[in-house]
Design a binder for these strands. Structure first.
Lengths: 123, 123
DNA sequence: CCGGGTACTCACATAAATGTCAGTGTGGAG
DNA sequence: CTCCACACTGACATTTATGTGAGTACCCGG
């Protein structure tokens, strides 16, 4: 199970989800859209995320080419994260989705998330 | 832990992801955009998905109001799934994302997914 | 020296998502 | 009678995602 599993995507949407999937990557993109941020700033900008998870997301997005990591060899250490052009283009593509979310925020918040996927006896 | 956990979303994007998150919901939306499909058709339209998971996704999307389920009491049983207006609006909002994915498909497929999030010693 | 801030890493633990496989009940085809 | 397609359901196993809490190395202010 360690071969180069050539992921074939059904459609562009599939591919896009593979890149920005997960609970946090969208928020990271969003937080960085106005410019570079340091690790600590990023953490504070995304309430609820844990350090470890943020780092993991950052690493993933770095290796998918979505963002750039700039290390300053100073004391105290300083690391800045910024979007690459690729990241910016993804962010732009997610704009409409964000607007949709805001427009329907009330409805989405009103959803009984407790019952979702819990209608049967599954969990 | 059975209270109505009022999920507060950071931004619209967050909310949208809560609704369409996961590996398959986007594909389901996509498959249904041109009209209603039966369960079996849907399964065949989405290669790689297992029956159980498809049902789970369908149930979730039903309870979030994204799609409508119409049962015909016939033999053999017939069930049709179709998008609600809400579902259609989400689909529209995901359009740009899908286009982005298609535009950058080569780049996305070229990503070494094996190494992503495996750079450290995590797994 | 102590504690604070910085950007991490490591070793776990848990939750959530996804997958596999075997049923269930029906009526028609063979 | 047997088997098939249909739309599921249920009991699992596995994988992936997320979370917790500690520790690291550095320097600076007190």
């Amino acid at each position: 199970m360690s071969e180069t599993k050539k992921r074939t995507f059904t459609c562009g949407l599939d591919a896009a989800i593979a890149v920005m999937g997960g609970k946090w990557k969208g928020l990271v993109l969003f937080a960085l859209q106005d410019g570079a941020l340091r690790f600590g700033e990023l953490r504070r900008a995304i309430p609820g995320i844990s350090e470890r998870v943020l780092i993991l997301q950052l690493r993933e997005m770095e290796s998918t080419g979505l963002l750039h990591r700039e290390v300053y060899h100073q004391v105290p250490p300083k690391v800045e994260y910024s979007l690459t052009p690729f990241g910016h283009s993804l962010n732009a593509a997610m704009g409409p989705l964000g607007e949709w979310g805001e427009q329907h925020l009330d409805r989405i918040e009103a959803i009984a998330w407790d019952q979702v996927s819990g209608s049967g006896t599954d969990r």
